[in-house]
Design a protein around this nucleic acid. Structure first.
Length: 282
DNA sequence: GGCGTTGTTGGGGA
DNA sequence: TTCCCCAACAACGC
């Protein structure tokens, strides 16, 4: 479920909280959720937390890293020794339910704090990896949508031979990372470009507009702490994001397009729900 | 019981 | 080989 703004929000928070903390114990409640040997990282200290695409990386002082992908329903919830979530904020009222029936892994940290990995659908994972394995994992990825390395020339070159619909191309991690279904629908609506257009049919000017709007919706999503539908995404402190209040297309089928006043449609594209305005998105 | 769900991956066909 | 489509992963709510 989390897209880049959600993962970025979680990463930024964990980067404030976790460095210098030691992993004292790990309880794996669902084998499928954890890859590698817990004994290789128990006793190590977290030195940094970073993000690439939608993958969060915990850097450890023994040279290994712990990587996690939250996929659709993963959550990382930090609870300190006083059972406050997210390091000092008031806690969501379900803090006392942890570990819950969806908790897959529990990390005990320095001084009695704990990090919970919850994942309803069990698509997400956490894995112990070496630097070399991480390099391989990241090698095929295009630049992050919010990366300074991403520019119009790159996007034009990446899409020139792609005939798939522009929406699918923008969601392809080999082209650009971090633009998921919610934000890509909104970026296309703001750009007044149809999601069904072949990627290589867009003019350079259209791609420029789409890139700028994509960067803008992602930046806005980060500002608002992500998007929460159905309570599936929550931050490290257990609370929801705010972008769902500002969506321009996603989830608005039957409501008026903010560009032109026509009604937003919903159709399937590449197996995903696609919200767009048939009138002004051309 | 059926359908839909915010992400990724791999198999198979063209 | 590359490109592209689609099923699969699995659990929940409507």
């Amino acid at each position: 479920m989390p897209e880049l703004p959600e993962v970025e929000t979680i990463t930024a928070k964990l980067r404030q909280i976790l460095p210098h903390q030691k992993i004292t114990q790990i309880k794996v409640l669902k084998d499928k959720s954890f890859g590698g040997d817990v004994d290789h990282i128990i006793g190590s200290k977290i030195t940094d937390v970073s993000r690439r695409a939608k993958i969060i990386r915990f850097h450890l002082d023994n040279g290994l890293s712990l990587l996690t992908h939250l996929k659709m329903t993963g959550q990382l919830i930090y609870v300190d020794q006083d059972r406050r979530m997210g390091g000092g904020h008031p806690s969501a009222d379900w803090v006392n339910d942890l570990p819950s029936k969806h908790t897959r892994i529990v990390y005990d940290l320095t001084g009695g704090a704990r990090l919970f990995f919850n994942d309803q659908r069990i698509f997400g994972w956490m894995k112990v990896m070496t630097a070399e394995q991480i390099e391989n994992q990241f090698a095929q990825l295009g630049p992050d949508i919010n990366s300074p390395d991403l520019n119009l020339d790159y996007l034009v070159a990446a899409l020139v031979r792609r005939r798939i619909p522009i929406k699918q191309a923008m969601m392809d991690n080999k082209v650009v990372c971090g633009l998921g279904n919610i934000y890509v629908c909104d970026a296309l609506n703001l750009s007044q470009i149809s999601p069904f257009r072949p990627a290589n049919s867009l003019s350079e000017h259209e791609l420029k507009t789409l890139l700028a709007n994509s960067q803008q919706v992602i930046a806005r999503g980060i500002e608002l702490g992500g998007t929460t539908f159905d309570g599936k995404y929550v931050g490290v402190d257990g609370f929801a994001g705010g972008y769902q209040k500002e969506v321009v297309a996603y989830g608005r089928a039957g409501e008026k397009c903010y560009n032109c006043g026509s009604l937003i449609s919903k159709e399937k594209l590449g197996g995903r729900g696609t919200y767009y305005c048939p009138n002004c998105q051309r």
